[in-house]
Simulated scan of single mutants.
Amino acid sequence: MPSTSRVRSRLFRTAAVAALLPLALAACGSSDSGTQGGSGATDAATGGITTVSSGNLTVCTHLTYKPFEFNQDGQTVGFDIDIVNLAAKEMGLTVQVVDIDFEQITTGAVFTANRCDIAAAGMTITEPRKQAILFSDPYFDATQALLTKTGSGITGLDSLRGKRLGVQTGTTGQEYATKNAEANGYEMVVFDDLPLGVNAVKAGRVDAAINDNGVLYDFAKDNPDTEVVAEFDTGEQYGIGAKKDDANATAIIGKLNEALATARQDGTYDEIYKKWFGTTPGAAQPGATDTQSPASPATSS
């Protein structure tokens, strides 16, 4: 989601990012072909809703964040992609994915630039972000977790005194680790995406890594030389983002909320959840550990 410089941030940033928008957007690529950033096109099948690319629901995300969004056999797949497909199907549209810096999403820059219709990126709903973008109803419950090498003897943040903890820049995990660093005496090593951080654990460059529980359990499942040893009760919920204070974006989010509610009622949501996580909502992840209470209050982001 160069090991210490760039951003897949989960925190709200300042307007300074907007000043870099033209350059940042010029550097971003799309995982599918199609017209992007134009004046939009209204499709009759959508009931008058305008999309940035005719016939498509253009979704901004930041790869890779398996199992929420990642590339497989040349296609972008994952839990988030299946969720947005629910709304796209109802509107008669095809999902088109754009891979872009996460910070451009959380600041609302991608919507100001008409780059995409919605954003799905394992993004926690926070009060600061709600000032910049419109959120859907929550669609996933998450918390922070700690990944280590198997048999490390590390059981939580209090086991990391004098050790190195990998964090993903701008994320909830980084914020939580920062709040607890002084009390637990570890050094934070900042990575700009998920794969760099978790693979640093495998390689022994850091002693542990903190990130959202869903992605860490998925990584540990595929890498048995690692394990999730702790979870922290941060009480986060993911939401789909769209342009704030915009009637068209509000209508799209309304369609998404309706599709999500229907999927929860008819069992489709549970099927999608089990497809990607191997359990039903609320059930423990395979290999799950006891959840630890925060050592200090953590602001979800």
Rank of each mutant, 00 (worst) to 15 (best):
A16E: 14
T279H: 06
S296R: 01
T280C: 04
T42H: 06
D212Q: 15
T143L: 07
Q285Y: 13
D222W: 02
S152G: 06
A263G: 08
K255P: 04
A283H: 02
R115W: 04
G282Q: 03
V190H: 10
D266V: 12
T250L: 02
N199T: 15
K243N: 15
K244W: 10
T112F: 09
T124F: 07
V228C: 00
Q237I: 03
E103C: 07
N213Y: 06
K274E: 15
A181V: 09
R161E: 10
K130L: 12
T268Y: 04
I272R: 01
K274H: 14
Q72C: 11
L194V: 15
F232N: 01
I105R: 05
T106I: 15
I100G: 10
A18L: 08
E127R: 05
S300H: 04
T14Q: 11
L216H: 04
I81G: 03
A120D: 01
P224A: 13
T35S: 14
T94K: 15
K130F: 10
E103N: 13
T291I: 06
A208C: 15
A142E: 14
C60L: 06
L20K: 12
Y176P: 09
R164V: 13
L21A: 13
T124E: 11
G37T: 09
P22L: 09
A45Q: 10
T106G: 15
A87N: 01
E231M: 11
A19S: 12
Y273I: 10
F68P: 00
V97E: 05
L21F: 11
K66H: 04
A142W: 02
V17R: 02
D80Q: 08
P286K: 00
A41D: 13
D32F: 00
V52R: 01
E236L: 03
F70K: 04
G287H: 04
L165D: 02
L147P: 07
E271H: 13
A41Q: 12
P2V: 14
V201H: 07
A263N: 03
S152T: 08
V52T: 12
E227K: 07
I272G: 01
L11F: 05
T262K: 14
D245L: 04
D218N: 12
P138N: 03
D101I: 11
Y186D: 14
E231F: 11
L260H: 02
K149E: 12
D193Q: 06
G92V: 08
A16V: 14
A142V: 13
L146P: 01
N56W: 00
F111N: 04
T268E: 03
G38R: 01
N211V: 15
A19P: 06
A26R: 03
G37I: 03
V228A: 05
D290V: 05
G38V: 14
N248V: 07
S293R: 13
